[in-house]
Amino acid sequence: MAVARALASPHEDAALSIRPARAEDIAAVSELDAAITGLAKPAYWRDLFERYGTRRQDQRFFLVAESDGEFLGFAIGEIRAWEFGAPPCGWLFAIDVKPDARLTGVGTALFHALCERFRAAGIDKLRTMLARDNHLMLSFFRSQGMMAGPSIQLEMALDDP
């Protein structure tokens, strides 16, 4: 899963556009992820594009931000229904912005574009999940208006006695 990192203020660059990802974007997506995580996983991103960029397009959204043809970042979300008993809601599970394009509103634009697609599909709730020590992304999501949801994530080590 890509880790979201964008921190942004409302974008004022008229050239910024958000559109569905195309197959030719995946190299840039993979490269951005590799630059940030230090781990190249091109096959994973190609598979993700196949699943989220080409199928069930009314429920899955793989978006790309670009300015004057330059790739700036991406976001992926999906409508999931009745997972853990929850009514249909939009899940944002990846958002990433090129380091030199951060703090310019690209992350915010991607976030809003994803919200718009969920709204258009009749969804009224957005969810995401991230590590609680990921202060940067937690701050970004909170600055967009997100608050703690009704679920609590639990886990256990299976090698515990």
């Binding site: 609680r132 202060h135 937690l138 701050s139 999501f141 909170r142 600055s143 208006g145 703690a148």
Partner: peptide, 22 residues
């Protein structure tokens, strides 16, 4: 406590002002 600290760390003054407005 860990949850509380994570929450406090993630909320900027600017975000608090937005919450107040909302």
């Amino acid at each position: 406590d860990e949850h509380a600290v994570a929450t406090f760390r993630s909320v900027s003054i600017s975000t608090m002002l937005k919450i107040i407005e909302r």
